[in-house]
């Protein structure tokens, strides 16, 4: 899949295969790229004021593409996206729901 060539990252991880720690590390690495240095696990990265107006959509595309999930309209809650821990929990929840379904 060409995504790995384009981003230099691993291909999408199959549903249910990644541990929360792996998800958190991957999310943290993406955010470090986006905001300059890696945020703390519970740091609100939107509060830094360094993200651009395109960042929100890039973050959505990143979690969908990397973890093979679909962010749906009902998932739009800042509680899901503010911090590394929040994104990790969100991804974990979506993947659990996907593998059950």
């Amino acid at each position: 899949m060409s995504v790995s060539i384009l981003r230099g990252m691993s291909d999408s991880i199959p549903a249910g295969a990644a541990r929360p720690a792996d998800v958190a590390a991957t999310v943290r690495a993406f955010l470090a790229e986006a905001v300059g240095d890696a945020p703390e696990p519970d740091e609100d990265m939107f509060a830094r004021g360094t993200v651009t107006s395109l960042f929100a959509l890039q973050l959505i595309a990143f979690v969908e593409n990397t973890f093979g999930i679909e962010v749906e309209p009902e998932d739009l809650d800042f509680a899901n996206f503010r911090t590394v821990n929040a994104v990790t929990a969100f991804v974990g929840g979506k993947r659990a729901a996907t593998s059950r379904g």
Partner: peptide, 16 residues
């Protein structure tokens, strides 16, 4: 077009 087709996170920037 290519990066949009695979929903790459860089697609937004590639489009700009």
């Amino acid at each position: 077009a290519q990066v949009r087709a695979v929903r790459d996170p860089d697609a937004v920037a590639a489009t700009v």
